[in-house]
Simulated assay, not measured.
Amino acid sequence: MNDDPYLLLPTAPSVDEYVHLRAASGLSPKTPEQAAPVLTASWAFCHVREVATDTAVAMGRTLGDGGWYFHIADIATLPEHQSRGLGRRVMTWLLAQIAERAPADPYVTLNADAPGRPLYRSLGFVETAPASVAMRLRTTD
């Protein structure tokens, strides 16, 4: 018998769950129209459900070309489920997918907001600044 209150599924959550997980965990809000293609166009996606309530409580995905470049994104856990190892579980699964499915020597990146940095460092990620920094195209002020 498995007493784990959480189940990791190797699939994307629903559009509504994706939108909710992003906003509730502090990531920038997205619309259902923005979310829909994300769920099918990601290289790998997983989410964690609370078994008792069948609720999506954490997620993460990998974007990639399948060759050498992979970017981890949307690592999100609902606040009431944080500090239970769910982010680590998601990250471990995503990194295992890269190790199993990608050719040798992949280049794996992510953008690390302050709350996630200890987790990412513990998994072997290092900061690239000042050699390189993340940049984005500013489309609004």
Rank of each mutant, 00 (worst) to 15 (best):
A58D: 07
T109E: 07
V108Q: 00
R89Q: 07
Y107T: 09
H71V: 15
E100I: 10
V90E: 02
A99E: 08
A73N: 15
A104M: 08
T92Q: 11
V108M: 01
T62F: 03
M59R: 06
A41D: 10
L94F: 02
V51T: 14
V108A: 05
T62W: 05
M91Y: 01
W93F: 11
H81L: 14
E100S: 12
E100M: 08
P79T: 15
D74T: 02
H81F: 12
R49V: 15
G85I: 02
Y107C: 12
E50S: 15
S42F: 07
R88L: 03
Y69Q: 08
T62Y: 03
P79K: 09
V57F: 01
G60F: 01
T40Q: 13
C46A: 09
P103N: 00
A44Y: 00
F70Q: 05
R88A: 09
P106A: 04
W43C: 12
S42W: 04
A99L: 07
M59V: 10
G66H: 07
L95F: 07
A58I: 03
R89P: 03
P79F: 12
P106R: 02
T55D: 13
A73W: 08
I98V: 10
G66C: 07
A76P: 03
H81I: 12
R101S: 12
G60I: 00
R49T: 15
W43Q: 02
L86R: 06
A102I: 01
W93N: 06
P79L: 11
T55G: 14
E80S: 15
H71R: 15
I75S: 01
E50R: 13
Q97N: 04
G66K: 01
R49L: 13
A104F: 04
G64T: 00
R101Q: 13
I98G: 02
T109L: 10
R84W: 10
L63S: 05
R61N: 04
V48Q: 11
A96D: 03
L95M: 02
T77E: 01
L95D: 00
